[in-house]
Amino acid sequence: MSRADTAPRRPRPLWSLGLLRNEIGTTFRRWRTLALLAVLAGVPVLVGIAVKIETGGAGPAGGGGGPAFISQVTNNGLFLVFTSLAVTLPFFLPMSIGVLAGDAIAGEAHAGTLRYLLVAPAGRTRLLLVKYATTMLFCLVGTLVVALSALTVGALLFPLGEVTLLSGTTVSFGEGLLRALAIAGVVALSLTGVAALGLFVSTLTTSGIAAMATTVGLLITVQILDTIPQLHTLQPYLFPHYWLSFADLLRDPVYWDQLQKNLGLQALYTVVFGSAAWARFTTRDITA
């Protein structure tokens, strides 16, 4: 431990990724993250069992009512993937993102670990990027957990086979699977806006719980605003407005219009709230 030892320390660019690796490992080993993923995995199981009991295995369920695609589940287990994503996307998925993103900075501040990360020095911009990247990864993992759980339950409870698309065309099971994968990707990207929003909220407070509650509260408020007809001029700018457009991937040819609007809107939210989070976090006094 002499001063001579301190001189030859040359940082390598790759070493900067150490924090991201550590953050991902820490997040996904955390009991809370695993519990959120377990809840997400449980939703398709519930939906699958409910459909199975309701229909008693005797022919297709009655038309209308219930979440999208639910009437097709009994014919093809693959549709449980679409149904489950349609069920979890409005609330379960964004809520778990809200918990993770809201806690990202505020939780560290609340525990006091933020000051030690910053004097390490993690660097404020780097830390923010690491947190956002980890939250995005959770968006993808959460979506895949729902999809895989649904596929497993669907395969166990219902027959699998060729997929009849919404436009009436029939495609092979393999292509159906590919389309399911694409849908999972679109769903994960649909969540990036709310992730950026949550991260911004997280930089505003030193209470992880408050940040989580605010993010989830905003999510619910926006979802309600999106259903009030009088606000139709505002609605195209609300982040959940085009969420269910992922169903357009089940058409032949695919309708890109709403999908593009959805992804554009998510990018807009990411840029706006990401910048706001950066502006706030890099200038804030860390007193916790």
Binding site: P11, N22, A120
Partner: peptide, 26 residues
């Protein structure tokens, strides 16, 4: 600074590894 602050869900070693990972020169 103002007393220790730790990740309760990590081990003692885990806490150190995390802080060290945060240092880009380590």
């Amino acid at each position: 600074i103002e007393g220790p602050a730790l990740y309760g869900h990590l081990t003692g070693r885990g806490n150190l590894l995390r802080l060290d990972a945060a240092d880009p020169t380590a």
